[in-house]
């Protein structure tokens, strides 16, 4: 009964500027990321897909936290890249070497802001070209092996510190984006150590985004590994945390196939809805999510 009570009470902490949430991205920069991505257009590299995902996630998170003239620090965000023999902070420019950065600082300090053209509704039934700002925080990169266990170890160290500093806050969410194969040890064992770190509101959550060269339908938030195409995907599924009830409800609301036993695992799809799995207040249902 006590165990049940604790489970029921977990993942309820309000996310606010005083008690922010934490997203820590682990990004695979090994040489295999140069290979073609199986879930997209021909000739596209997995590293390019990863960079697109990460830039879109940070972009959307910035928009989500934007409030009138400014931006509220509802989240702190970190990006660790792993390649060759090591894992290190992967944000560049003025944010080089930083492991966790408040979203306001991140939004204000991209590597560059590109201008791109997009088609938009002209309000009279037609389409017009519109110039939009496209901030870039992260460029594709690949080299050497896949020290994913080192990345999970470094993530464990970072979230331990975070949980000590924010003991009553919503537990950090670590999102690992990879093509799947650790070359430096037992992935599951390291994942268990990471998700054993906890605060008053529950344990750290680990989600895995698998960008595979294997072509095939994307799979989002599965409850079991039956339909996963290979051993790497199954192992990443095994390492992924079960979604919280709020996340299941929110994912369902966003049209994702979530159930009570869904894990935070996505195969060959852009995980753009993941940032909406944490609640920061009323969200209009009639705003199209990007």
């Amino acid at each position: 009964m006590m165990q049940k009570a604790r489970e029921t009470m977990a993942y309820q902490a309000e996310i606010s500027r005083k008690n922010p949430g934490c997203f820590l991205f682990l990004v695979d920069q090994s040489e295999s990321m140069e290979d073609p991505f199986g879930g997209g257009e021909a000739g596209r590299k997995k590293a390019e897909e990863l960079a697109t995902i990460l830039n879109k996630l940070i972009h959307n998170l910035s928009i989500r936290c934007a409030k009138s003239d400014s931006i509220y620090d509802y989240f702190h965000v970190g990006v660790l890249g792993y390649s060759e023999e090591s894992c290190k902070p992967a944000l560049g420019g003025e944010l080089s070497g930083r492991s966790l950065v408040p979203i306001s600082e991140l939004a204000n300090k991209p590597l560059r802001i590109e201008e791109r053209t997009k088609k938009s509704d002209d309000g009279a039934g037609g389409v017009v070209d519109q110039t939009v700002k496209f901030p870039v925080w992260f460029d594709p990169y690949w080299k050497g092996g896949t020290p994913m266990c080192a990345a999970l170890k470094e993530a464990t160290r970072i979230v331990e510190t975070w949980c000590e500093e924010h003991p009553t806050g919503f537990p950090p969410i670590v999102i690992n984006i990879t093509d799947g194969e650790a070359t430096d040890g037992d992935l599951i064992a390291e994942a268990r150590k990471l998700t054993a770190v906890s605060g008053d509101d529950g344990s750290v959550l680990l989600f895995n985004i698998h960008l595979s060269s294997t072509a095939g339908p994307s799979i989002e938030l599965p409850g079991n590994a039956n339909k996963l195409p290979d051993q790497h995907a199954k192992q990443l599924f095994e390492a992924s945390s079960t979604l919280t009830p709020f996340m299941v409800a929110r994912a369902t609301e966003l049209g994702m196939p979530a159930a009570e036993d869904s894990r935070g695992f996505i195969f060959n799809a852009q995980p753009l809805h993941v940032i909406h799995f944490l609640d920061i207040g009323t969200r209009p249902a009639n705003v199209r999510l990007r």
């Binding site: 928009i63 936290c65 934007a66 931006i71 204000n108 802001i113 939009v132 700002k133 009639n286 705003v287």
Partner: peptide
């Protein structure tokens, strides 16, 4: 109103109220 990129993009979505 001079707005940074994120504030400008958010304002483009409009404000919402019950």
């Amino acid at each position: 109103r001079p707005l940074p990129w994120f504030a400008s993009e958010k304002a483009e979505q409009g404000a919402f109220a019950a």
